[in-house]
Write a protein that binds this DNA or RNA. Sequence first.
RNA 1: GGGCUCAUAGCUCAGUUGGUUAGAGCGUUGCGUUGACAUCGCAAAGGCCAGAGGUUCAAGUCCUCUUGGGCCCACCA
Length: 886
Amino acid sequence: MIDEIPKQYSPSDTEERWYSFWEENNLFSAKVNHEKKPFTILIPPPNITGILHMGHALNNTLQDILVRYSRMRGLESLWMPGTDHAGIATQNVVEKAIAKEGFKRQDLGRDKFIERVWRWQEEYGSTIIRQLKKLGASCDWQRLRFTMDEEYSKAVVEVFLRLYEKGLIYRGTYIINWCPRCHTALSDEEAAHREIKGSLYYLRYPLEQANRQTGKQANYIVVATTRPETMLGDTAVAVNPKDKRYKNIIGKTITLPLVNRRIKIIADSIVDIKFGTGAVKVTPAHDPNDYALGKKHRLDFINVLNPDATMSELAGPYKGLERFKAREKIVEDLKALGLLEKIEPHDLSAGHCYRCHTIVEPYLSKQWFVKMGPLAKSAIKVVKEGKIKFYPNRWTKVYLNWMENIQDWCISRQIWWGHRIPVYYCGSCKEGDGVIVSRIKPEKCPKCNSSDIHQDEDVLDTWFSSWLWPFATFYRKDDLAYFYPTSTLVTAPEIIFFWVARMIMAGMEFQNKIPFKDVYIHGTVRDAEGKKMSKSLGNSIDPLEVIKEYGADALRFSIISITAQGQDVFLSKEKFEQGRNFANKVWNASRFILINLVFEKVNFDLCVFFKKEALSPVNRWILSRFFSILSEVEKCLEKYRFNEAANLLYGFFWHEFCDWYLEIIKSDIQNPHNQLIMYKVLEKSLRAMHPFMPFITEEIWQKLPHEGLSIMVSKWPHIQKQIIDKEIEKEMAEVFEVVSAIRNMRLALDIPLASLDIQVKIYPANKNNRLLLESNASYIKSLAKVKSLAIEDKFLHLKNEYVNVLKGMHITIPLTGIIDIDKYLKKINDKILGAEIDIKSKKAMLNNKNFIQRAPKEIIEAEKNKLEALNEEAKKLRGLRDGLKA
RNA sequence: GGGCUCAUAGCUCAGUUGGUUAGAGCGUUGCGUUGACAUCGCAAAGGCCAGAGGUUCAAGUCCUCUUGGGCCCACCA
């Protein structure tokens, strides 16, 4: 047997084998089963461009723990997997690929390009799925969904139509976030605000009348701006009506420099008197505030930018210049004209494209929007009523705050890859805007019968399909009825707005039911310095490398045990050693048991008739501890306290089961009770640890006597409450304290644990002590490696005995014949003397005024610390000496 | 401007509704190996729980403020 089981656990040998086994036996699949309650988790669909990173590893391990746990608890457990078509991200990747071949998507044309993306998706789109399997994810792969599946796409179109018919989708010209690199509109959420170091430019705008009337030096008004290039599109200057400085010039005209446009000075209370000069240039086509001002005061909207962020036709002499080049040039030109007052450094936050990190432009364009206010209402209600709960709870506030201030959602994207907007336009219709919203392309215009019909060129925001994920993934009605609402959503904080909030709105709007009951928000994975782990920063640890080196179980266990609820996770490679070491510990404890287990002796039926009274204290103790721990583990999992659950199992298995229990029964391992209990506790522990470490637990479980096909479909251990015995737990804890005390005494006396036999006498403090010691004497003897243990009636400190006091008990070791007392005492006394001499000299040093006054502080501090250490040492030695009676 | 979060052992962090002696991993020190495991065992050292005030019989935990990190949101021209 020993030869069969290697001393070290080798994950690579076992993981692939068991994963295939689970898949081949269909153990991941869930079906409608009205005998059982359902438990459903939807994977946050990774992008098809995605490659497994530590964030995924954490996210999916958490989900797998929940699913495996609930599966073992007898719930019909479905983990629905799938991928997201990730419009912009995927289009960017494929564009890069064809760029290597020397052409652009426009060269291919829309249809050919889309074909190309599909081919790319077939080849690379499931990379992350294969990687999730390496992690051990027990998803029902037969249900693998993709947001561009035909059925899924139908749902997207259906939803668009329903919202349109309800008047919740509209088209209009507004300022949106425009990414000049991706050439598309973005939603507010997709334009992530980041601090940038910018400048505040103070520009002089000449006043027309002043010039004429005085004929003197040009009189001007100074405006401050962070984006001087937009001045080309200015159509007013605004001041606060209460601002005394500008009271007299409201309504007057300015000649806009460089383009010589005549614009008015208007008054509006929105202007902050304290900011800049209190006068603000108004560019209605390039700023959301200015847009509002423009509407209110009926100003002109002049778009001076092209979609690629070069200056447009309307930028006059600057036409064609890139926006930042134009900025430089304009500042230069204004300076030359004496119209640049000053430039101040100014930090501001600007939107960045969440896909390519380019600074986005506020840009006036015609887009499709979803009216969010009406959708938010019931989504707010269900969270306020506690029907959906966030873990940790603090995210509730974040969610509600966003929902209560919700803005309309720009859903059209000027890219090709995605769900094309189901809107058609009649080319010859004279009435209205010619918009036809339809599930399929209409043959003829319903109004004028023209067949000159073309579809809207834009596609929908990727999140417009993702928000349907909780129900659109169920392609069969009975599945939807059974598995929806789902149970728990496990996700990261950064997508609460993108996804979680919108799913709740969609669930309420289209199913009239919440999409999930619990939302568990885990932390962000960071490196040792606290920076977010990301490919672009180059600080990421590749989970696949970790799996290769340490094993998937080690990765899973490590990452879980260091992830406190909702806190960020700080990772470094060494942290995976903890998981690897634990896996190895489990492996070797099992190896020991397998070597010593006589299979025939493990009578399964025997335990049914076991009364706990029949068992030895240590067997009662380990069973009680196991069930106590298990009940805590369950409580933790109910509350999504994964790390606590993992650490409880870790501590129990390693320190209680291995370090104490197995060590105790080693000497009597053939005893049938010990055989049975060590087997039982191991087997149950494996089941309890399986959700956390699926591979190694399966590997060992299969080697043990077992019933059933696989540990993953075995039952979660049932807590036998009558076996939990707090008395025995307390009693054994005290026994272990006595053992530790004796071990300490041996160490102090330099008596190695292995070599000499010692005889220990204990004088109990009271009756309870006596009972405790008497009934556990054999354990104490074997654990402390004591030859004999006598429980005495009366404490007498005899000659040549070393005494230690623990909770009123006197533990003594007679030293005659074991060590040479005189020699030992002399050694100790010498040490004490030596220490005292050192103390004396240190004290003298510290009492020396010259030293104190002249020596550097650090040195004095160090000397003080040395003195303290010496005092400690001497105290210990005296204790040792006083415990001895020579 | 609003909000959230963190500060506990040398390092990285746990510590649920207040309740005996504040824990773990790593690191350090000492001892230990032919008997499951050195990816190990037995021990040890190491904490004014950021600072100040308050509530309480009782505060690492609750309240207020201060200091110093991190994050999110907002129409900071």
